[in-house]
Design a binder for these strands. Structure first.
Length: 645
RNA sequence: GCCGGCGUAGCUCAGUGGUAGAGCAACGGUUUCGUAAACCGUAGGUCGGUGGUUCAAUCCCACUCGCCGGCUCCA
C-alpha cells in the first residue's frame, strides 16, 4: 500500500502501482477544468505515471502555469505532427512552450508561406479530432540515436548526443514520434482550440553561426472563447502599438534621413517628455539627490580605464579623432560621475553622494533589433549613481526601492515583479563583498515586504542587482527599473573616501535607473494608456471648441486664462461643424473639450465634454478651472500642479 | 548581422512591361453649423536609391538604404 497526500492535506491509501490519473480521478478541480497532468513530489508527470511509493500529488489543469506549459508543449507536438504530415521532409528541431503559446522549429529548405500555415492548421485540427493518445516510451541513447538517424532527424540526434542521461524518453501520438522529456496531456483531443499564428526564421540553438530554421508560432486554449479572447488581446496590442500612435498623435518619428534608431521628438511628444523629466528632477531633488550633467563624448582613454572598451566595444560607436586624440561617443554615463567623484578628496562624512542625470547615451544596436522607442541607438537614461559606505548600503537600497515603486505608481502602473540576481560564474570582487552586497539587497527587499524571485547566477559580473518589471494594462511585463551594485568601477578608477581612521576606503557604487530609458518608458506609457495620457501628462489638456465666429474672442480669452493658470489649452476657431471639431479632439485624445456657443458666452460658462465619456455638464469658467486644478493636484507634485484661482 | 515579408502622394492603400489612381489630409471657395467626418474645386508622386535586362521598367534581375515579423528560453 502507498499513501498519497493531496493539496488540501487529505490523504488516501492505494495499492502500489496505480496511476496518477486513478489517484486524481475524483479529486475536485476548480473552474470546471480538465485534468491534464499531475505534479508528483513537485515534478510534473503524465497522468499515466505509475505510483509506487508514498507521494504528494497535485492535479495540473490549464489554470496552473505548469499546466499551461504541458498543454502548450503537447500543442507544439501536434503542430510538429501536422507539419510532418504536410511536409514529410521537414526536420524536427525543438518545440517548447513560451510565455504565451509555443513554437516549433523545423529544418526546411524554404520559409513557410501563409498558405502553408493554413494547410498546417487544417491538419492540426484533424489531429485534434483524431484524439490520438500520447504514449511515453523510454529508450536508451544507444537505441534512440539510430532510430532518429533512420528518420533523418539530425537535430534530434544532436540533442540526444548532448544529453548526459543515458536514457531518453520519446512520445508517440498516432504515427508521429518525437524525442521529448514530457510530460504531456493524455491525448491530442484534449486541446480545445488551436491557432497557428506566424512563421519566422530562427537559428538552431539561437546561434547565428548555426543554420537558420523555420519557426512556427502557435497558441491554444481549452475553449474557443479563451482563444478568441487571446486573439482579441493581440489585436488590442496592435491597436496600441506606440509606433502607430506616435505617428497619429504626432509624438515622435524616426526618419531615414537622420538614421535608424534615432528619435525625433515632435512638439507634442516633447511636451510629454518634458513633463516626465520635470517630475523626475523634482522628485530627485526632494529625495536628496543632486543633479549633474556630463558631455556626450570623452577621450577614448576614459573608456579604456572603465573597461568598456574591453567588454562593451561591440555596442559602442567607433571613436573619432580630434587633433590627434581619439574621442568616444558615450554609451554610459557612469565614468563621468566617477570623474566628478574623483575631483576632490571625499570624507566618510560626505557619503552617501547621490548624483542623478538624464544622460543621453548612444549604443550601436544591430539593425535587426531596433524597434520604435523600445530599442534605439540614442536614448536618455534616467541615470543615478550613489556612492556610499558599506554600512549605508542597505538603507540606500531601501530608499531606491521605495522611490522606484512610488514613481512607477504615479504613472499608473500597479503590478510589479521583482528579481534579485546573484553572483555569476565569472565575476570581479571578493566573496565577502558579494555576500555583503547580496545580503543588503535581500534585506532591503524584506524590510519593504517586496515579494521577489531570486535568479541565481544571473547578476552582472561587477555586482548583484535588483530588477523590477512592470505589468501594463494588457498584462505584458516590461523591464525598466534596475538597481546594480558595482565593485568593478570603484576599483578600476581607484575611488576612495577617507574613513574615521584617516585611511582610504573604497566606496560602494550603485547604478540605478527607474525608467531605464526615457524613450523606452514613453513607448511603454503610450501603449499602457493607448495614447490617452492622464490629464497631468496630456500634451494638450483642454481644447476649446467654438460653434461659430461670434464666440471666437470668448474662446481665445478662455485659452489665455487657462494658460495663465498653467494648463495646456488650445482653441479650435475654424468654421467647421462641431461634430468635426469633437471628432478631431477625441482622435487627438484631448482629455477635456469645452464646447462654447452663444449660450455659454452669455452665461460665462463652458459646456464640458470628457474624452471618451462624452458630455459632462456645464459649469462656470472658474468652476472648471478649479476642478481641473483639483484633478492635477491629485496626480502631480506640488510644483507641477497649477495653483487654483 | 541573419531568415522571411514589405517600400507607390503628407497618411491609409489600389494598380500595370507601354512613364500612375482612390479616400483622408493640404490649399482655394461655399456653408455659421450644439457633442465623433458639410459641400464644390485645385494642387500634389524622377512609384526608397543605384545599376542592369529590354525598343520601353514603378513592374523583371542585382546591389543598396529603410521598415515590419522573428533569431536565450536545450528534447
Amino acid at each position: 500500500m502507498i499513501e498519497v497526500t493531496y493539496p488540501d492535506k487529505s490523504r488516501r491509501s492505494y495499492e502500489s502501482g496505480i496511476t496518477a490519473f486513478a489517484a486524481l480521478e475524483d479529486y475536485p478541480l476548480p473552474n470546471n477544468r480538465t485534468l491534464l497532468a499531475a505534479e508528483v513530489d513537485g515534478v510534473a508527470v503524465d497522468l499515466s505515471t505509475v505510483l509506487t511509493s508514498d507521494i504528494s500529488i497535485n492535479p495540473l489543469t490549464f489554470d496552473a502555469d505548469i499546466g499551461k506549459e504541458v498543454y502548450w508543449h503537447t500543442s507544439a507536438h501536434i503542430l510538429a505532427q501536422a507539419v510532418k504530415t504536410v511536409f514529410p521532409t521537414a526536420k524536427l528541431a525543438i518545440g517548447p512552450p513560451i510565455d504565451a503559446g509555443f513554437y516549433y522549429d523545423f529544418g526546411f529548405e524554404r520559409a513557410f508561406t501563409p498558405e502553408d500555415l493554413d494547410r498546417i492548421e487544417g491538419e492540426v485540427h484533424s489531429i485534434m479530432k483524431a484524439d490520438y493518445p500520447l504514449q511515453r516510451m523510454e529508450s536508451s541513447q544507444k537505441d534512440a540515436i539510430p532510430f532518429f538517424q533512420d528518420r533523418d532527424e539530425s537535430y534530434k540526434v544532436e540533442i540526444i548526443e548532448s544529453i548526459s542521461d543515458p536514457s531518453v524518453s520519446m512520445y508517440r501520438q498516432g504515427d508521429f514520434i518525437d524525442l521529448c522529456r514530457g510530460p504531456h496531456v493524455p491525448s491530442t483531443g484534449r486541446i480545445g482550440a488551436f491557432k497557428v499564428l506566424s512563421g519566422a526564421g530562427a537559428y538552431w540553438r539561437g546561434d547565428e553561426h548555426n543554420p537558420m530554421l523555420q519557426r512556427i508560432y502557435g497558441i491554444s486554449f481549452p475553449t474557443q472563447e479563451e482563444l478568441d479572447q487571446h486573439l482579441h488581446l493581440l489585436e488590442e496590442a496592435k491597436r496600441r502599438d506606440h509606433r502607430k500612435l506616435g505617428k497619429e498623435l504626432e509624438l515622435f518619428s524616426v526618419s531615414d534621413e537622420t538614421g535608424p534608431g534615432l528619435i525625433l521628438w515632435h512638439p507634442k511628444g516633447a511636451m510629454v517628455r518634458h513633463l516626465i523629466e520635470t517630475f523626475w528632477r523634482e522628485q530627485h531633488l526632494e529625495r536628496g539627490y543632486e543633479l549633474v550633467y556630463s558631455p556626450h563624448i570623452a577621450r577614448l582613454d576614459l573608456w579604456k580605464q572603465s573597461g568598456h572598451l574591453d567588454f562593451y566595444q561591440e555596442n559602442m560607436f567607433a571613436s573619432m579623432p580630434v587633433e590627434g586624440n581619439a574621442y568616444q561617443l558615450k554609451p554610459m554615463n557612469c565614468p563621468f560621475h566617477i570623474i566628478i567623484y574623483k575631483s576632490r578628496l571625499r570624507s566618510y562624512r560626505d557619503l552617501p553622494l547621490r548624483w542623478a542625470e538624464l544622460g543621453t547615451v548612444y549604443r550601436h544596436e544591430r539593425s535587426g533589433v531596433l524597434h520604435g522607442l523600445l530599442r534605439v541607438r540614442g536614448f536618455t537614461q534616467d541615470d543615478a549613481h550613489i556612492f556610499c559606505r558599506p554600512d549605508q548600503l542597505a538603507d540606500e537600497v531601501v530608499g531606491i526601492i521605495e522611490f522606484t515603486f512610488a514613481t512607477l505608481r504615479r504613472f499608473g502602473f500597479e503590478h510589479f515583479e521583482t528579481f534579485l540576481s546573484t553572483r555569476p560564474e565569472h565575476a570581479v570582487g571578493s566573496d565577502e563583498d558579494w555576500q555583503h552586497a547580496t545580503d543588503s539587497l535581500e534585506s532591503a527587499l524584506q524590510r519593504l515586504d517586496v515579494p521577489y524571485t531570486t535568479d541565481p547566477g544571473e547578476g552582472v559580473f561587477y555586482g548583484p542587482k535588483i530588477d523590477i518589471k512592470i505589468r501594463d494594462v494588457l498584462g505584458r511585463a516590461w523591464q525598466c527599473s534596475t538597481i546594480q551594485l558595482d565593485f568593478n568601477l570603484p576599483q578600476r578608477f581607484g575611488l576612495a573616501f577617507t574613513g574615521p581612521d584617516g585611511k582610504p576606503h573604497q566606496p560602494i557604487m550603485i547604478h540605478r535607473a527607474i525608467f531605464g530609458s526615457i524613450e523606452r518608458f514613453m513607448g511603454i506609457l503610450i501603449e499602457h494608456f493607448a495614447g490617452a495620457f492622464p490629464t497631468w501628462l496630456a500634451p494638450v489638456q483642454v481644447k476649446v471648441l467654438t460653434l461659430g465666429e461670434t464666440q471666437s474672442s470668448y474662446a481665445s480669452d478662455l485659452v489665455v486664462q487657462l494658460k495663465q493658470q498653467g494648463f495646456r489649452a488650445e482653441a479650435d476657431l475654424r468654421s467647421e461643424k462641431m461634430n468635426l471639431k469633437i471628432r478631431e479632439a477625441e482622435t487627438a485624445k484631448v482629455p477635456y473639450m469645452l464646447v462654447v456657443g452663444d449660450r455659454e458666452v452669455t452665461a460665462g460658462t463652458v459646456s464640458i465634454r470628457k474624452r471618451k465619456d462624452g458630455p459632462a455638464g456645464t459649469m462656470t469658467r472658474a468652476a472648471f478651472i478649479e476642478m481641473l486644478a483639483a484633478e492635477m493636484s491629485e496626480h502631480v507634485s506640488t510644483s507641477l500642479a497649477p495653483t487654483p484661482s
